[in-house]
Every structure is written in C-alpha cells, then in structure tokens.
Design a protein around this nucleic acid. Structure first.
Length: 416
RNA sequence: GGAGGGGUGGCAGAGCGGUCGAAUGCGGCGGUCUCGAAAACCGUUACCGGCGGUUCCGUCGGUCGAGGGUUCAAAUCCCUCCCCCUCCGCCA
C-alpha cells in the first residue's frame, strides 16, 4: 500500500503518478474517505478521553460515564465504518510508477531498452516446441488433459532431465551471487497474498483451498516476501532465491497461447527476491536484471529487454523489466523473465521494517525471475537441428542434462 | 484426528477487573569512574495514529497472538479463530 500520510501531504504528485496506472479515481475516493476519517477521529478521541478515570467512580461519575457511553457508541460506529472504507480503498490503490517508466496501458507501450543477439537463422523451417517435443514424447498434453484438464503437461524422458538441470543450474548460479537458497511453501494464507499485492485486485487468478483458507501461489515471490512478514529485519540487503512450483488460473487468457507448455496452469520457476534499504532498490533492480541477462546469455539465447509501460504494471510494481527471448517457432520475442521493483508497497502491507538511526522504516522489496520452463521452450526451439534433435547449452550438462537430446539411442530408454 | 499446556516489550518473565503500556532480570543506548577498558553505579530504552508547535518535543487516542462480546472500566472474564509446546494416533 501507499504511504497515506505522504499522499495526503502531496496529493497532486501522487494523483499524477497514479493517473498513469489508471488509478486516479480510486485515489481521489481514498482522499475523500481519509478526510471523513480525520474529521471523526478527534471527536471520538475527545469523548474517549472523557471516559478515562482512575480508580472506582463515584455514583455521580458513574451516571456521567453512562451518558458519555451512549454518545460515544454512535460516533465510534461511524468512525469504524469510515476507517473500513478508507482501508478498503487503500488496499486498491496501486504503487505509483517510477518516473522513468513509459506512459501507456498495453504491452505495446513498453520501450525496448536493449537488444542482444540476432534472431536465430535456420536453413530449414524451424519447428515449435510442441512439434519438437511431440516427436519424442517429451511433452504429453493428451494424457495431462485426461488427468488434469487443459493447460497441463507431463514432461517426460530427456526433457524432464533437461528441465531439472535448468533449475538446478540457475539455482547454483544465483547462490553464487550471494542469494540464500530456499524451498518455500506453495500453499499460503490470505495475508501473504494480500501482503504481496496480489489480493484483492487479482484474486480470481489463483487457486484456493477454501476448506483450509489457503491459496496456491502463482509465484514464490509470495512466500519469499512473506518470509519476513511482521518482522524487524537487519543485515540488509537480504537476498534469496527459491525454486517452486507456481499455479495460475490463466482465467483471462482464454484462447491465448494454447499450444504446448508456453502458458499452463502449473509450472516451475527459480525466483530471486531481495529486501533492501530504500535508497538502494534502484541499483538492486538493475542488479537483478543484470543477473537475468547473464543467465540468458550463458544459455546462448538472443533476447531484448523491455521497460514495461505504467498502465501495464501490476498493482505492486513501481517499475518492471521483462526479458523476451526469441522463439523461432513463433518467430517473435516472448517474455521469459520479469523483474520488478515494488519499493515499499509490499513491505507496508506485510509490515517488514528495519531500523535506521533507531527509527523503524519500511524496507524495499524486489523480485525477479531466474528461469522458468519458458526458457526450456526457447532452448528447444533455438537449438534444434533439422533431424529434430537438440544441442543442449553447455552449462546445463554439468547439472545432469544430456549434451544432445532427441537423437537415436537415448530415445529407446524413455519409451512411454 | 484425540487429550492437555501456553502465546505479555529486543529476549526471559511477572501481572489474572480500575491507580498497568505493564514489576523484575538480561540485552541495547547515554553518563559517572578510568590513561583506556572491564566491573560497579546512575539514567534511559515498545509500536501505531490524530492534533499543536516541528532536527525533535508536547498532548490525546489505540495496541499485551487476531477478531468479537460482557462491564462505567479488560493484559486480566466469556466466545470464535490463528500459532507454538507436550503426549497419543496416523503418516512421506
């Protein structure tokens, strides 16, 4: 959530920034609700002060107290309602975008920050990941549909090994950068979803387990951010890297990316997360992007970096960089990583603070993708040969991936 | 899943209807002493919000796991939920 006091003191700056996210109206509603609260608060407090007394009251005082109580009840009721209204609106106001975020509301409004490498050239017609995988039985969507429904996949044989190697490699590389490795819970309470800014605005995008009041996380950003929920932290920056399965309803994505495993309800992801001092978060954001780029480079994938437009940012991000890799099967760049600076938006909701000169202040938080299965798809499509085999990026072979998959003898081993 | 015990300040731990934001100890910070340090001693040390002056202070309100209730008055009594511990059961 935003800093209400700061917004109250400088409403015009906040309004202008929030307008870029289309949140001008809700912000003005918030200010009005806030004024209503502030009008009632002194009156309530003044009456409450009158009910305070030390020791046993005399009969006359008791009489007076009963009268004040009646008066108070009505006012407290109104104050409580005003407070709820304000909180409700506060929960819906997004993090204002940073100044260096481009205007616009859609994907197309992002600016291309940099372009690295060239779209891969082929002397034959490159196949897409599903064609490639289907030929080897690596991705089984039919059986997955039977078992779980559409947008689920089985990864089988060498592809399973390759995918695990990818995660294991990424984890290792990020740990080398000083991040603490974590295997987090993927079922979380509502507070964690709220605290990271996914609730209430994106509630419909996630699976829940109503009987237990738990939610399946769409990213390990949630359990990582909530790791320090309610804490006073020290030793900043605190840097983590998690491997977890992620679950998304993809409710708004009907008909989009329906082929293969590009967009599925369940996937795995290695995710970076940082808690840092406010003045440091810009640098940390660049740092996370640099790590992401390095990984993509080590895999040998051509890519571009996008600075996402204000209106296309989620509620919690002040700024977001996406890396899009070239997917030869689709002949276009598609998102494979995303890193956001969420400034103090999550730490306010989660109440994560640190002590600076004896005073408690909210930390800044940042998240960034190391790798997901989308990188795997990009690898399949980018490093395919005409015979349908794939030459695996060298770094992955140290983590259990065969150096070439999809050729001859190995196939027999994993027949399904 | 069953039976019991418990959640109080940075930590440990008392308080179990009013004078309690809360004893005491430890830790932290400041000071005295000292060439310096330790020890000892003295002082200080929770958070959130409103208002007024505004490096900071004053004042009022709220907060003793969370929410609700009883009462003129709740850390203290009642209800619901959450969490932790012990024992039993079950289980990878």
């Amino acid at each position: 959530m935003i800093d209400l006091r700061a917004a109250r003191n400088d409403p015009d700056t906040y309004r202008a920034a929030l307008a870029r996210k289309g949140a001008e109206a809700v912000f003005d509603e918030l200010l009005a609700a806030d004024r209503a609260c502030l009008e009632l608060q002194p009156r309530v407090e003044e009456l409450r002060a009158r009910t305070k007394l030390k020791g046993k009251p005399t009969p006359e005082q008791l009489e007076e107290l009963r009268r004040v109580k009646v008066e108070l009840q009505e006012l407290e009721q109104r104050f409580a309602e005003a407070g709820e209204r304000r909180q409700e609106l506060l929960d819906r106001v997004p993090n204002p975008p940073a100044e260096d975020v481009p205007d616009g509301a859609s994907e197309e409004d992002a600016t291309v920050v940099k372009l690295v490498g060239e779209p891969t050239e082929f002397s034959f017609e490159p196949r897409d990941h599903l064609d490639l995988a289907a030929a080897h039985g690596w991705i089984d969507v039919e059986r997955a549909a039977r078992v779980s429904g559409s947008r689920f996949v089985y990864r089988v044989g060498d592809l399973a090994l390759l995918e695990i190697a990818l995660y294991r490699w990424a984890l290792e590389r990020i740990v080398q950068k000083g991040h603490v490795p974590v295997l987090p819970p993927v079922l979380v309470r509502e507070e964690a979803m709220y605290g990271t800014g996914f609730f209430p605005s994106e509630k419909g995008d996630f699976y829940d387990v109503p009987e237990d009041g738990l939610y399946l996380v769409g990213t390990s950003e949630v359990p990582l951010a909530a790791f320090h929920m309610g804490e006073e932290v020290d030793g900043l920056p605190l840097r983590y890297v998690a491997l977890s399965t992620c679950f998304r309803r993809e409710a708004g994505a009907a008909g989009r990316d329906t082929r293969g495993m590009f967009r599925v309800h369940q996937f795995d992801k290695v995710e970076m997360f940082v808690f840092c001092e406010p003045e440091r978060s810009r640098d940390e954001h660049e740092r996370l992007l640099a790590i992401e780029e390095q990984l993509v480079q080590e895999l040998g994938l051509p890519y571009r970096v996008l600075n996402i437009a204000a209106g296309d940012l989620g509620a919690s991000a002040a700024k977001k960089y996406d890396i899009e890799a070239w997917f030869p099967g689709q002949s276009r760049y598609r998102e494979i990583t995303s890193t956001s600076n969420t400034t103090d938006f999550q730490s306010r909701r989660l109440n994560v603070r640190y002590r600076r000169d004896g005073k408690l202040e909210h930390v800044h938080t940042l998240n960034g993708t190391a790798v997901t299965a989308r990188a795997l798809i990009a690898i399949l499509e980018s490093f395919q040969d005409e015979d349908g085999s794939i030459s695996v990026p060298e770094p992955l072979t140290a983590f259990g991936a065969p150096s070439r998959v999809g050729s001859g003898a190995r196939e027999l081993q994993f027949r399904t």
